[in-house]
Protein backbone atom coordinates (compact mmCIF):
# COMPACT_ATOMS: atom_id res chain seq x y z
CA UNK A 1 0.00 0.00 0.00
CA UNK A 2 1.46 3.42 -0.97
CA UNK A 3 2.24 5.80 1.90
CA UNK A 4 -0.59 8.19 1.09
CA UNK A 5 -3.17 5.41 1.22
CA UNK A 6 -1.83 4.37 4.60
CA UNK A 7 -2.05 7.95 5.87
CA UNK A 8 -5.56 8.45 4.51
CA UNK A 9 -6.92 5.23 5.96
CA UNK A 10 -5.11 5.43 9.28
CA UNK A 11 -6.95 3.81 12.21
CA UNK A 12 -8.67 6.57 14.18
CA UNK A 13 -7.13 5.27 17.39
CA UNK A 14 -3.75 6.61 16.20
CA UNK A 15 -5.33 10.05 15.97
CA UNK A 16 -6.65 9.63 19.51
CA UNK A 17 -3.21 8.58 20.74
CA UNK A 18 -1.41 11.52 19.08
CA UNK A 19 -3.93 13.97 20.53
CA UNK A 20 -3.65 12.32 23.94
CA UNK A 21 0.12 12.78 23.89
CA UNK A 22 -0.26 16.42 22.80
CA UNK A 23 -2.47 17.12 25.80
CA UNK A 24 0.12 15.61 28.12
CA UNK A 25 2.93 17.90 26.85
CA UNK A 26 1.95 20.99 28.91
CA UNK A 27 1.89 18.82 32.04
CA UNK A 28 5.58 18.03 31.52
CA UNK A 29 6.81 21.25 29.92
CA UNK A 30 5.80 24.55 31.50
CA UNK A 31 4.40 26.84 28.83
CA UNK A 32 3.37 30.50 28.86
CA UNK A 33 1.04 31.32 26.01
CA UNK A 34 0.02 34.95 25.45
CA UNK A 35 -3.72 35.55 25.15
CA UNK A 36 -5.14 38.15 22.75
CA UNK A 37 -7.94 40.15 24.35
CA UNK A 38 -11.31 40.54 22.65
CA UNK A 39 -13.99 43.23 22.90
CA UNK A 40 -16.79 40.81 23.82
CA UNK A 41 -14.95 39.61 26.95
CA UNK A 42 -13.90 43.15 27.86
CA UNK A 43 -17.59 44.17 27.70
CA UNK A 44 -18.50 41.56 30.32
CA UNK A 45 -15.62 42.66 32.53
CA UNK A 46 -16.68 46.31 32.24
CA UNK A 47 -20.24 45.41 33.18
CA UNK A 48 -19.15 43.42 36.25
CA UNK A 49 -16.85 46.31 37.23
CA UNK A 50 -19.93 48.47 37.71
CA UNK A 51 -21.51 45.99 40.13
CA UNK A 52 -20.03 47.56 43.26
CA UNK A 53 -21.11 48.83 46.66
CA UNK A 54 -24.46 47.11 46.99
CA UNK A 55 -25.32 47.00 43.27
CA UNK A 56 -26.87 43.67 42.29
CA UNK A 57 -26.30 41.31 39.37
CA UNK A 58 -27.62 37.87 38.56
CA UNK A 59 -25.11 35.13 37.84
CA UNK A 60 -26.75 32.06 36.31
CA UNK A 61 -24.76 28.85 36.71
CA UNK A 62 -26.49 26.79 34.02
CA UNK A 63 -23.94 24.11 33.29
CA UNK A 64 -23.18 20.55 34.33
CA UNK A 65 -19.91 18.99 35.47
CA UNK A 66 -19.21 18.00 31.86
CA UNK A 67 -18.54 21.60 30.85
CA UNK A 68 -17.15 22.85 34.13
CA UNK A 69 -13.57 22.81 32.84
CA UNK A 70 -14.48 25.69 30.54
CA UNK A 71 -17.15 27.50 32.51
CA UNK A 72 -16.11 27.14 36.14
CA UNK A 73 -13.08 29.48 35.79
CA UNK A 74 -15.44 32.19 34.45
CA UNK A 75 -17.77 31.78 37.43
CA UNK A 76 -14.88 31.95 39.88
CA UNK A 77 -13.40 35.09 38.31
CA UNK A 78 -16.76 36.90 38.21
CA UNK A 79 -17.73 36.01 41.79
CA UNK A 80 -14.34 37.12 43.12
CA UNK A 81 -14.54 40.40 41.23
CA UNK A 82 -18.04 41.21 42.54
CA UNK A 83 -17.07 40.38 46.12
CA UNK A 84 -13.92 42.48 45.90
CA UNK A 85 -16.05 45.42 44.77
CA UNK A 86 -18.58 44.82 47.58
CA UNK A 87 -21.28 44.17 45.00
CA UNK A 88 -24.24 41.89 45.62
CA UNK A 89 -24.79 38.62 43.81
CA UNK A 90 -27.94 36.71 43.06
CA UNK A 91 -27.23 33.18 41.85
CA UNK A 92 -29.49 30.64 40.23
CA UNK A 93 -29.02 27.35 38.48
CA UNK A 94 -31.09 25.97 35.66
CA UNK A 95 -29.10 22.81 35.06
CA UNK A 96 -29.63 19.66 37.02
CA UNK A 97 -26.15 19.44 38.48
CA UNK A 98 -25.45 23.13 38.74
CA UNK A 99 -26.58 23.58 42.37
CA UNK A 100 -23.95 21.36 43.98
CA UNK A 101 -21.17 23.06 41.99
CA UNK A 102 -22.55 26.51 42.72
CA UNK A 103 -22.83 25.76 46.42
CA UNK A 104 -19.23 24.55 46.58
CA UNK A 105 -17.99 27.56 44.62
CA UNK A 106 -19.89 30.29 46.41
CA UNK A 107 -19.27 28.86 49.88
CA UNK A 108 -15.53 28.67 49.24
CA UNK A 109 -15.18 32.15 47.71
CA UNK A 110 -17.54 33.83 50.20
CA UNK A 111 -15.37 32.47 53.03
CA UNK A 112 -12.30 34.10 51.44
CA UNK A 113 -13.99 37.51 51.42
CA UNK A 114 -16.06 37.16 54.60
CA UNK A 115 -19.33 37.49 52.69
CA UNK A 116 -22.59 36.35 54.22
CA UNK A 117 -25.41 34.46 52.54
CA UNK A 118 -28.58 36.50 52.54
CA UNK A 119 -26.75 39.79 52.96
CA UNK A 120 -24.08 39.86 50.27
CA UNK A 121 -25.29 37.07 48.03
CA UNK A 122 -28.27 34.78 47.66
CA UNK A 123 -28.24 31.40 45.98
CA UNK A 124 -31.78 30.66 44.83
CA UNK A 125 -31.13 27.04 43.82
CA UNK A 126 -32.33 24.91 40.93
CA UNK A 127 -35.58 24.57 39.02
CA UNK A 128 -36.17 22.37 36.00
CA UNK A 129 -37.47 23.64 32.64
CA UNK A 130 -35.21 26.67 32.06
CA UNK A 131 -37.60 28.53 29.73
CA UNK A 132 -40.47 28.40 32.19
CA UNK A 133 -38.23 29.29 35.12
CA UNK A 134 -36.81 32.36 33.36
CA UNK A 135 -40.34 33.46 32.43
CA UNK A 136 -41.42 33.06 36.04
CA UNK A 137 -38.34 34.95 37.29
CA UNK A 138 -39.43 37.78 35.03
CA UNK A 139 -42.54 38.27 37.13
CA UNK A 140 -40.87 37.64 40.49
CA UNK A 141 -37.87 35.60 41.63
CA UNK A 142 -40.13 34.31 44.41
CA UNK A 143 -42.46 32.54 41.96
CA UNK A 144 -40.00 29.81 40.97
CA UNK A 145 -37.89 30.23 44.12
CA UNK A 146 -40.05 30.90 47.20
CA UNK A 147 -37.19 29.39 49.19
CA UNK A 148 -33.49 29.62 48.47
CA UNK A 149 -31.19 26.61 47.98
CA UNK A 150 -30.68 26.26 51.72
CA UNK A 151 -34.40 26.28 52.49
CA UNK A 152 -34.62 29.90 53.76
CA UNK A 153 -37.70 31.89 52.83
CA UNK A 154 -36.51 34.37 50.20
CA UNK A 155 -38.65 37.16 51.68
CA UNK A 156 -36.76 36.88 54.95
CA UNK A 157 -33.34 37.46 53.37
CA UNK A 158 -32.21 41.08 53.85
CA UNK A 159 -30.58 41.28 50.42
CA UNK A 160 -33.85 40.38 48.72
CA UNK A 161 -35.83 43.28 50.21
CA UNK A 162 -37.17 45.21 47.23
CA UNK A 163 -35.61 42.76 44.78
CA UNK A 164 -38.40 41.19 42.78
CA UNK A 165 -37.54 40.61 39.16
CA UNK A 166 -35.10 41.45 36.37
CA UNK A 167 -35.98 45.11 36.77
CA UNK A 168 -34.13 45.09 40.08
CA UNK A 169 -30.84 43.62 38.87
CA UNK A 170 -28.24 45.46 36.84
CA UNK A 171 -27.98 42.61 34.39
CA UNK A 172 -27.52 38.89 33.93
CA UNK A 173 -24.37 36.94 33.17
CA UNK A 174 -25.42 33.40 32.28
CA UNK A 175 -22.77 30.70 32.13
CA UNK A 176 -24.46 28.01 30.12
CA UNK A 177 -23.48 24.68 28.62
CA UNK A 178 -26.79 24.01 26.86
CA UNK A 179 -30.13 25.45 25.77
CA UNK A 180 -30.45 27.71 28.81
CA UNK A 181 -28.24 30.17 26.90
CA UNK A 182 -30.91 30.55 24.19
CA UNK A 183 -33.66 30.99 26.75
CA UNK A 184 -31.79 33.80 28.48
CA UNK A 185 -31.69 35.62 25.14
CA UNK A 186 -35.26 34.82 24.07
CA UNK A 187 -36.97 35.42 27.40
CA UNK A 188 -34.51 37.27 29.64
CA UNK A 189 -33.46 39.86 27.08
CA UNK A 190 -36.14 39.89 24.38
CA UNK A 191 -39.18 39.55 26.65
CA UNK A 192 -38.07 41.29 29.83
CA UNK A 193 -35.36 43.57 28.46
CA UNK A 194 -32.70 42.71 31.02
CA UNK A 195 -29.12 43.10 29.69
CA UNK A 196 -27.69 39.61 29.17
CA UNK A 197 -24.13 38.39 28.63
CA UNK A 198 -23.19 34.76 28.13
CA UNK A 199 -20.28 32.54 29.01
CA UNK A 200 -20.41 29.43 26.81
CA UNK A 201 -18.23 26.51 25.77
CA UNK A 202 -15.85 26.96 22.84
CA UNK A 203 -17.98 24.68 20.66
CA UNK A 204 -21.10 26.77 21.29
CA UNK A 205 -19.46 30.16 20.91
CA UNK A 206 -19.86 30.75 17.17
CA UNK A 207 -23.61 30.24 17.62
CA UNK A 208 -23.94 33.35 19.74
CA UNK A 209 -22.00 35.92 17.71
CA UNK A 210 -25.15 36.89 15.74
CA UNK A 211 -26.85 37.86 19.01
CA UNK A 212 -23.81 39.85 20.04
CA UNK A 213 -23.86 41.85 16.82
CA UNK A 214 -27.64 42.33 17.09
CA UNK A 215 -27.18 43.79 20.58
CA UNK A 216 -29.23 41.05 22.25
CA UNK A 217 -26.10 40.14 24.16
CA UNK A 218 -23.83 42.82 25.53
CA UNK A 219 -20.89 40.47 25.99
CA UNK A 220 -19.70 36.94 25.39
CA UNK A 221 -17.04 34.80 27.08
CA UNK A 222 -16.22 31.99 24.66
CA UNK A 223 -14.75 28.83 26.16
CA UNK A 224 -11.52 28.44 28.06
CA UNK A 225 -9.89 31.14 25.93
CA UNK A 226 -12.56 33.60 27.00
CA UNK A 227 -12.06 32.55 30.61
CA UNK A 228 -8.31 33.13 30.27
CA UNK A 229 -8.94 36.56 28.73
CA UNK A 230 -11.25 37.48 31.60
CA UNK A 231 -8.68 36.39 34.15
CA UNK A 232 -6.03 38.36 32.35
CA UNK A 233 -8.13 41.56 32.25
CA UNK A 234 -8.99 41.07 35.93
CA UNK A 235 -5.31 40.39 36.64
CA UNK A 236 -6.24 37.22 38.48
CA UNK A 237 -4.71 34.22 36.64
CA UNK A 238 -6.53 30.99 37.39
CA UNK A 239 -7.75 27.82 35.73
CA UNK A 240 -8.54 29.67 32.52
CA UNK A 241 -4.99 30.86 31.96
CA UNK A 242 -3.66 27.45 33.05
CA UNK A 243 -5.94 25.75 30.50
CA UNK A 244 -4.62 27.66 27.50
CA UNK A 245 -1.43 25.58 26.92
CA UNK A 246 -3.54 22.40 26.69
CA UNK A 247 -5.81 23.99 24.17
CA UNK A 248 -2.87 25.32 22.18
CA UNK A 249 -1.04 22.00 21.88
CA UNK A 250 -4.21 20.12 20.96
CA UNK A 251 -5.11 22.68 18.30
CA UNK A 252 -1.56 22.57 16.94
CA UNK A 253 -1.81 18.79 16.61
CA UNK A 254 -5.19 18.99 14.85
CA UNK A 255 -3.74 21.58 12.44
CA UNK A 256 -0.76 19.31 11.73
CA UNK A 257 -3.09 16.35 11.15
CA UNK A 258 -5.15 18.39 8.68
CA UNK A 259 -1.97 19.39 6.80
CA UNK A 260 -0.74 15.78 6.71
CA UNK A 261 -4.06 14.37 5.50
CA UNK A 262 -4.24 17.00 2.74
CA UNK A 263 -0.68 16.31 1.58
CA UNK A 264 -1.57 12.62 1.36
CA UNK A 265 -4.83 13.48 -0.40
CA UNK A 266 -3.07 15.54 -3.08
CA UNK A 267 -0.29 12.97 -3.45
CA UNK A 268 -2.93 10.31 -4.07
CA UNK A 269 -4.76 12.51 -6.57
CA UNK A 270 -1.51 13.19 -8.45
CA UNK A 271 -0.63 9.49 -8.46
CA UNK A 272 -4.09 8.56 -9.74
CA UNK A 273 -3.82 11.19 -12.47
CA UNK A 274 -0.38 9.90 -13.51
CA UNK A 275 -1.74 6.38 -13.52
CA UNK A 276 -4.73 7.25 -15.72
CA UNK A 277 -2.49 9.24 -18.08
CA UNK A 278 -0.16 6.27 -18.36
CA UNK A 279 -3.10 3.98 -19.16
CA UNK A 280 -4.54 6.35 -21.78
CA UNK A 281 -1.12 6.72 -23.47
CA UNK A 282 -0.85 2.96 -23.90
Amino acid sequence: MPWYDRVLSIDRRWVYLILGLAVVVPVIVEMHIPVTLSREVQAVYDFVSEVRDGELMLLAIDYDPSTMAELHPMAEAIIRQVFEQNGHLLLSSLSQFGPAMTDELITRIAADYGKVHGEDFVFLGYKPYPAITILAMGSDFRVPFPNDYYGNIVDELPMMAGVHNFGDVRGVVALAGGTAADFWIIYGNAKFGVPVALGVTGVMASDYYPYLQAGQLFGLIPGIKGAAEYEQIADRPGEGVRGIPYQTTSHAVILCLIIVTNIAFFAKRAATRRHSQAISSL
Partner: peptide, 9 residues
Protein backbone atom coordinates in the same frame (compact mmCIF):
# COMPACT_ATOMS: atom_id res chain seq x y z
CA UNK B 1 -42.06 51.60 38.87
CA UNK B 2 -43.52 48.13 38.43
CA UNK B 3 -44.72 46.02 41.32
CA UNK B 4 -47.35 43.33 41.05
CA UNK B 5 -47.16 41.71 44.48
CA UNK B 6 -49.66 42.86 47.09
CA UNK B 7 -47.71 41.25 49.90
CA UNK B 8 -44.14 40.52 50.94
CA UNK B 9 -44.31 37.32 52.96
Amino acid sequence: QTEGNTTIG
